[in-house]
Computed example of a mutant assay.
Amino acid sequence: MPPIEPHRCALITTGGTIVSRIDPATGLAMPVLSGDELLSTLRGHGDPGEVEVHDFCRVASPHIGPREWVGLSALAQSIAAREDVAGIVVTHGTSTLEDTAWFLDLVLRTEKPVVVTGAQRNASAPDFDGPRNLLTALKICRAPAARGLGVLVALNEHVNAAREATKTHTVDVETFQSGEWGYLGSVVNDRVTFHRAPARRLHIPLTASALPPVEIVSMYPGASGALITAAADAGARGIVVQAVASGHVNEAMAGAIGAVLARGVAVAVSTRIPRGGTRAGYGFPGSSQRLAEAGAVLAGDLSPWKARIVLMLALQRGPVPAPELARLFDQ
């Protein structure tokens, strides 16, 4: 007789709009709901099934950073190891949801579904989207087809891979998109359907209790490179450059990048362009090719903020040779 599959889902709450209500005194939304109170908003929307609640924190997502990621990943890993849990839903503010989802995707070791969701409209709004998104996430959590796909981002009945998901609109409920790659799947009524699986998966074990500092510095017309130098002076172990086009900077930025590379600071080059990623192809000073020749690595299709997370994890144990870093970004 085959073993009975568990149906219990773990709900980890971290704050964000999905647990926010309008404060009558200020007219402004604040994260105030507990996980149990969030579950109570599902009445009349559908049956959440068996859910256990873990209130990890209750903050706006701009206040979530590497320290919280480390603690959250430890909690999620311990829950995923339990035989009585089918999967995990993490509720999160949408501002930095994709960052947290990508971190979890990189460090967690589990075949069980881990679904990150949130809301664009708070619980005081008449069209609060939190209940629909939470129910959708719980359905995915129990779907056998969701196993082995890594961390998923699910809002508005669409499913994205953590690597590909990005917030594209500040208020639209259809905010999370996967760019040129497209959604992994969708949820219609009670049916969870996947159209494809993520082709690119990367795992970097979390080995440190605190992650090394990595800063993001933007290239723009007339950039002096002073912020590259300042980041290194402030103790950054790595710098992600948000370059233009397919990974280019001006000569001043290129000079500053070369100088910090000589000081042992790792540099990854991403782009401000949402699609296409970085690639070599030009030979002018400051081009992606010249930066790579100087010892920087190209981040490929990763956004600057996702490239930063890879670089932080890669540098946990100290400096890493550029060819080894390049292999990580190529995976």
Rank of each mutant, 00 (worst) to 15 (best):
A25I: 13
G27H: 08
A256R: 03
E68W: 03
D105L: 00
A252L: 10
V241K: 01
G300S: 06
W102S: 00
R308T: 05
L97N: 07
P285C: 05
Q289M: 07
D127W: 15
Q120H: 06
G247N: 00
I88L: 12
G238E: 00
G93R: 14
P113L: 11
G283D: 15
G118L: 06
T14A: 00
G15C: 09
H169C: 13
I273Q: 03
T170A: 14
M312S: 07
A294C: 06
W69A: 00
T13I: 09
A123W: 03
V320T: 13
P31E: 15
R279K: 14
D129G: 12
A29M: 13
V32N: 05
A230Q: 13
V265F: 06
L42R: 01
A236R: 08
G182P: 08
F329D: 00
F103P: 10
G258C: 09
N133L: 08
T170C: 09
G264D: 09
V116T: 03
H195E: 13
L325R: 04
L325K: 05
T207W: 08
P66K: 02
R163S: 05
L75H: 08
L42G: 02
V115G: 01
Q177P: 06
G277Y: 06
T168C: 12
F103G: 03
R237D: 01
L315I: 10
K306Q: 08
A208D: 07
Y183Q: 10
V107Y: 08
G300M: 06
P213Y: 04
F56H: 13
I228Q: 03
A236G: 11
A292N: 07
I12S: 07
L227G: 08
S270N: 05
S34F: 15
S20M: 05
C141R: 00
V19M: 07
R82D: 05
Q331E: 15
I239Y: 00
T41V: 14
V173Q: 07
V153M: 05
V171K: 04
G235D: 07
A314H: 08
D55H: 01
L328K: 07
A314S: 11
G185P: 01
L302D: 08
A245E: 01
A76Y: 02
V267N: 03
V187D: 02
I140L: 07
S186P: 04
P212M: 10
V241I: 15
R132G: 15
E83Q: 14
L108Q: 10
A259T: 09
E164P: 01
Y183S: 06
R21G: 11
E98L: 11
Q77C: 11
V59Q: 13
G277S: 10
K112G: 00
T229D: 07
R147G: 03
L106S: 03
V115S: 01
G225F: 03
G46F: 09
G130R: 04
G222V: 14
G286Q: 00
A60N: 12
S303Q: 09
T136W: 03
V244D: 06
E37P: 14
M312P: 03
H158D: 06
S218N: 11
R121E: 00
C9L: 08
M1W: 06
L38G: 04
G238P: 03
V115N: 02
A210I: 11
M1V: 14
V240C: 05
A226I: 04
V114F: 03
L315C: 14
L291N: 02
L311H: 08
A299L: 06
P24M: 15
V249C: 07
A25V: 12
G247E: 01
E180S: 10
V188I: 15
W181E: 15
N189V: 14
